[in-house]
Design a protein around this nucleic acid. Structure first.
Lengths: 109, 109
DNA sequence: TTTTTACTGAACCATTTAGTTGACTATATA
DNA sequence: TATATAGTCAACTAAATGGTTCAGTAAAAA
């Protein structure tokens, strides 16, 4: 899936994850999103563009402002991909727990 | 979380996701991992290094071979981060479903 | 109408990334 | 011992990334 490339890449930047976290509280204008960060609005606009290209948010033009809101689809796809591994890590943690509690002491080495 | 940067960045490459998928079937040597790809082993080694740095897999030196296996922790952290948004996308899909089925027609535009 | 606000676009820069090649080390095998 | 195998390391390249500045447009407010 080529789309997962864009989604995970978009999520790999702390600024962009903070933008998404902000949008959990609801819709925001570009300038509102930019305000908390120590960088130019142009830079934040680029981050928003990356998130938008990945389908993680939607930008709506309204007068002279741009309003952003979360878009669930892409994030769900990323989560679905990871969930394939869930059984694996659950089992791994179970093994660790068993090892720590000694509930299964018969181990080779 | 700085670690999430590395984890999501590592997951944003299809080759690396394929390597992780391969490791779901069990441990593999570096040369085994490299075989399916149309690139040099050096390139694959670099991908493995990225995955290792992100904590997504573990490399064990054994004789002249290197054996790789999945490491669940980092993947779980990424999944946990995404799960914060789960309620959001569930709700969004519910809204969509309601809209499509017309089960709640009274909507302000 | 003038000015401010919200944002865009192009050009530029430094750093990182994903790949290559070629020379090397270390371990098995014949 | 000689040779093949598994992998490392350094150097290089091209493209992508994350930031900047500056000039411009379009909408709202004075």
């Amino acid at each position: 899936m080529k789309n997962l490339d864009a989604t995970f890449a978009a999520l790999s930047d702390e600024t962009r994850r903070a933008i998404l976290a902000r949008l959990m509280e609801g819709e925001a204008r570009l300038s509102d999103l930019a305000a908390p960060f120590d960088m130019t609005q142009t830079a934040v606009t680029k981050h928003v563009r990356v998130l938008s290209d990945a389908g993680l948010l939607v930008v709506e033009k309204r007068g002279r402002t741009r309003h952003c809101r979360l878009n669930a689809r892409a994030m769900k796809e990323a989560s679905d991909w990871l969930s394939d591994y869930q059984s694996f890590w659950t089992q791994q943690f179970d093994n660790l727990a068993q090892h720590l509690t000694g509930s299964r002491t018969r181990r080779s080495k």
